[in-house]
Design a protein around this nucleic acid. Structure first.
Lengths: 250, 250
DNA sequence: TGAATAGTGTCTTTCAGACATTATTCC
DNA sequence: GGAATAATGTCTGAAAGACACTATTCA
């Protein structure tokens, strides 16, 4: 089959794009001041073109012919944050007819975790059209372009589920961490307080976290023991191993 | 941007297709004779064109511009079996570079459950290029076209996971069923025997299954009580509600 | 020594596996 | 009555929530 131009071609098959929901853990702010807690933040991009010009949207773009889905998602992430993902996983393919006015676009969406960085770390992208927002700020999320509010909420829900049965919490952290830091991650993701004793027992049992001989000094009081993750160290799962995401409750 | 022809256009964006893995429960056969147990079967389509001409493949096809992903998946199912899905859910988007020789194709794959039908039921599609196979027959699955073996195995794994924490087992069955029938579904999907007493207690607790006043007569011995599913009756989840699949263990 | 955080022990409830037991139907 | 399947009861151990308690560091 041959087609005279792109319009005819477009009549046959929808556009294909890849977008990425990126989460990081940062200090929670109230009235501009840190509360002492941590929360989930995500980077958004301000649209400079119609449709939804001026509104915030998820990073994304068309998929190249010689580009895997994962590569495209990691590319979104690098372009937006300058960082590499410590976790990257397919979320869902969104294919509703009216996600975008005029065009029909199918978006394959990934979600990613990145390690916390100081907001003024040198490798972070400095771009007036990129900004970080609290992932649970309803005013921000509801105002997103396209169906991105729905996508962000779904990604948040997936992250919550995954943290409960899988050990990905450490991917927000560095190679050495205290159990209190892991608990901070859980509390930020699940958005509720956990009992330290039970949480500690839970971690000892079911996850690939093991104690080291080191302790974190420099705090104000008793230094906590440092732990490390002892599972497979693969930062980015392979395209061919979709041994991921499966336990969403319906 | 304008393009002179489809080749140029294709250089910009991969093809987009939708395929569907369809499961039904049927009598298990050994040497052509029923064993008394049930197992999972799936319908496959024999390819009549290159590539992989003559090999079996999952039903699928290109996505139309005004067609939702779910509609395309349900269309696969109807064309292959003549049946409507009692469950339909997105599985994964497969986007490896070399899934298909020469072309770059991204496939968004769904998985579906259909109620058991007698293999010679009138509404079933009669097509020499369609045949049903046991879903765990490694010789069949390994010989599938493209990366469909990987896809089928992933779908099976998802179905197993889902049946353990969700109540979809009844979607293999009619509106009224006995607990033994539900147990048969679980045993076929999980591929192991379950203790009837514990299984019964499990069902009473966590799922939307409730007893009716009816009993199934006509058996050889004590007639079992009939149950029904009391949850939401939606046969096909909405495109916009992805409250699905999330608990895969990684 | 006291404040603050790190870390342990124990009681209780819930739930799942193992398995013995009773119930009802048809032949 | 006996065979077969349906359905219930009970014992046990694993895991999670609640919460009291001990340990170690710094100021």
């Amino acid at each position: 089959m041959e087609f005279a131009n792109v319009s005819e071609r477009q009549a046959m098959s929808p556009e294909l794009a890849v977008s990425t929901v990126i989460f990081a853990l940062r200090d929670e702010l109230r009235d501009g001041e840190p509360t002492g807690r941590r929360t989930l933040w995500l980077p958004l991009i301000r649209r400079t073109r119609e449709p939804f010009r001026g509104q915030w949207a998820l990073p994304g773009g068309p998929l190249g012919v010689r580009q895997t889905l994962q590569d495209a998602a990691a590319g979104n992430l690098r372009a937006t944050t300058g960082l590499a993902p410590s976790h990257l996983e397919q979320l869902y393919a969104f294919g509703g007819l009216d996600r975008s006015p005029a065009h029909r676009v199918v978006s394959i969406v990934y979600w990613a975790l990145v390690r916390e960085e100081h907001p003024d770390a040198p490798q972070l992208v400095k771009d007036p059209h990129v900004a970080w927002f609290p992932a649970r700020d309803e005013a921000v999320i509801d105002a997103l372009a396209f169906d991105h509010a729905e996508i962000v909420r779904y990604a948040l829900w997936r992250l919550q589920n995954k943290v409960e049965y899988s050990s990905i919490a450490h991917r927000f952290l560095g190679p050495r961490f205290t159990l209190a830091q892991v608990q901070d991650v859980y509390e930020a993701v699940l958005d509720r307080r956990l009992d330290a004793a039970n949480f500690r027992r839970h971690l000892r049992g079911a996850s690939g976290i093991e104690a080291t001989d080191e302790y974190l000094h420099g705090g104000k009081h008793r230094p906590p023991r440092l732990y490390r993750y002892a599972g497979d160290a693969a930062v980015v799962p392979q395209e061919t191993t979709n041994t991921e995401e499966q336990r969403d409750r319906s």
